[in-house]
C-alpha cells in the first residue's frame, strides 16, 4: 500500500475480467462450432448428406422384374398393377441384393386382403369391397382369386 491506487483501478481489473470472459467465449465458439455449419443456411451442411445416406429398406418399384419376370408381366397388366410388389411382400431391398438374405412375405388367409377389400362405409363406393361375413367365409381369397391377376372367378362374372 505504498503508492496510492487510482480510483479507477478496480474498474480496470473488472474490465480485464470481462474481456477475458468474452475472449473465452469467442475462443470456445470457434472450437465447438462444426466446420460445415452455415454452408447452405443456419444448419450443418453435412446433415443433408447424412439424411441422403440413411439406409433404405424398400427397393425401387420394379426392382423385381429381372428375376421374377413371369409374375411381373402378369401383374403389370392386371388390375393390381398399381399395387407395388413390396406392399404385399414386405420391404425387400436386401432381397434384391442377396436373394437368400431375406425371403419375401406371402400374406396368407383373408385378413391382409381385407385391409383393402373388406367392406367399409368410409371407403370410396366404387372401390371393390366384400362383406367377409357373407362372402365365402370358409375359403381363403387366393383359393378363387389370383392376387397377381385378380378377376372374378369363372362363372361369377
Amino acid at each position: 500500500m505504498s503508492k496510492p491506487i487510482s480510483d479507477y483501478e478496480h474498474i480496470k481489473r473488472l474490465l480485464i475480467i470481462i474481456v477475458m470472459v468474452v475472449a473465452g467465449f469467442i475462443a470456445a465458439r470457434t472450437m465447438f462450432v462444426p466446420k460445415d455449419f452455415g454452408e447452405y443456411g443456419h444448419y450443418r451442411g453435412g446433415s443433408l448428406e447424412e439424411n441422403m445416406s440413411r439406409p433404405l429398406n424398400y427397393a425401387g418399384s420394379g426392382a423385381c422384374a429381372d428375376c421374377h419376370e413371369n409374375k411381373h408381366t402378369l401383374w403389370s397388366k392386371s388390375k393390381h398393377k398399381t399395387v407395388n410388389c413390396q406392399t404385399c411382400h414386405g420391404a425387400l431391398l436386401k432381397h434384391t441384393e442377396d436373394p437368400t438374405s431375406i425371403k419375401p412375405r406371402k400374406p396368407a388367409g383373408r385378413d391382409f386382403c381385407l385391409l383393402c377389400h373388406g367392406k367399409n362405409v368410409s371407403k370410396p363406393t366404387h372401390f371393390p369391397q366384400i362383406d367377409p361375413g357373407s362372402h365365402n367365409p370358409d375359403l381363403n381369397c387366393a383359393d378363387c382369386h389370383n392376387p397377381h391377376e385378380p378377376k372374378p372367378p369363372a362363372g361369377d362374372g
Binding site: R54, Y58, S61, N84
Partner: peptide
Amino acid sequence: CTFCYQRITKGLEPACVQACPTK
C-alpha cells in the same frame, strides 16, 4: 417425415407413395 430423403435423392419415391395401392 423427411419425404424419405434417402430415397428421393436417388430417384426413388417415398416409401408411403410407393406403398399406396390406390394412387
